[in-house]
Lab assay of single mutants.
Amino acid sequence: MDTYKLILNGKTLKGETTTEAVDAATAEKVFKHAANEHGVHGHWTYDPETKTFTVTE
């Protein structure tokens, strides 16, 4: 398992979190669910070198 990071750049919610996942696709599902639960919808990017997802509203 690897550690993946999410950076939230929402209009009303900003922050960072991490998750352990077997691959980037699994981490993305976890992060998108969490972002949706917090009402953050926007443009997603992924940097494979740093294993970091970013969502920007």
Rank of each mutant, 00 (worst) to 15 (best):
E57T: 06
Y4Q: 02
L6C: 11
T18H: 09
H41S: 12
L13W: 15
T56S: 08
V22H: 10
A21K: 02
A34P: 02
G10A: 06
I7Q: 04
T45C: 08
T45W: 06
A24M: 11
Y46I: 01
A24C: 14
A34L: 15
T52Q: 04
M1P: 08
A27I: 01
T52N: 02
L8Q: 02
T54C: 08
W44N: 00
P48W: 07
T17I: 15
E20F: 12
A35Q: 03
H33W: 11
M1S: 09
L13Q: 09
K11Q: 11
K29H: 10
K11W: 12
T50R: 07
G15V: 15
E28S: 06
F53T: 00
H33A: 15
D47S: 07
F53Q: 00
T52C: 05
V40M: 08
Y46Q: 00
Y46G: 00
H38T: 08
E16T: 11
K51E: 01
E20Q: 14
A27C: 01
T54V: 07
P48Y: 07
K11E: 10
K14V: 10
T26Q: 11
H33C: 11
A25M: 10
G10W: 07
A35N: 03
T52V: 06
V55D: 00
H38G: 07
L13Y: 15
A35P: 01
A24N: 04
N9K: 10
E37H: 11
F53M: 01
F53H: 01
F31C: 01
T54K: 05
T17F: 15
H38M: 15
T17K: 12
T18P: 01
D47R: 04
A27M: 01
T56D: 08
E28M: 14
A21H: 02
V30D: 05
A21P: 00
K11M: 13
H41T: 12
M1F: 12
N36R: 14
E57Q: 07
T18V: 09
F31A: 00
H33Q: 14
T18W: 13
N9F: 10
K11H: 13
K5V: 10
E16I: 12
T50Q: 06
G15T: 15
G42S: 02
G39W: 05
K5D: 02
E37K: 12
T52K: 03
F53E: 00
K29V: 11
H33D: 12
H33E: 13
V22K: 12
T26W: 07
A21T: 04
K5M: 06
E28I: 08
E49V: 11
E49R: 10
D2A: 13
A27Q: 01
D47M: 05
K32V: 08
E28R: 08
T26C: 07
N9S: 07
L6V: 04
D23A: 03
N36Y: 14
N9T: 07
L8C: 13
A25E: 12
A35G: 03
E20S: 10
K5T: 14
E37Y: 10
H43D: 14
V30F: 14
Y46F: 08
E20I: 14
I7Y: 05
H41F: 15
T19E: 03
V22Y: 12
T19W: 07
K29I: 12
F31L: 05
L6E: 02
E16M: 10
T12N: 13
K14C: 15
H43G: 06
T52M: 03
H33F: 11
K51A: 03
V55C: 05
A27G: 01
T19D: 02
N9Q: 10
A21C: 08
T52G: 01
K5E: 03
K29R: 13
D23V: 02
E20N: 10
T54S: 05
E57N: 04
T45V: 08
D47L: 04
V30R: 09
W44T: 01
E49Q: 11
W44Q: 00
F31R: 00
A27D: 00
D47V: 06
G10Q: 04
H43R: 12
K11S: 11
N36D: 12
D23Y: 03
T56G: 04
G39A: 06
G15C: 15
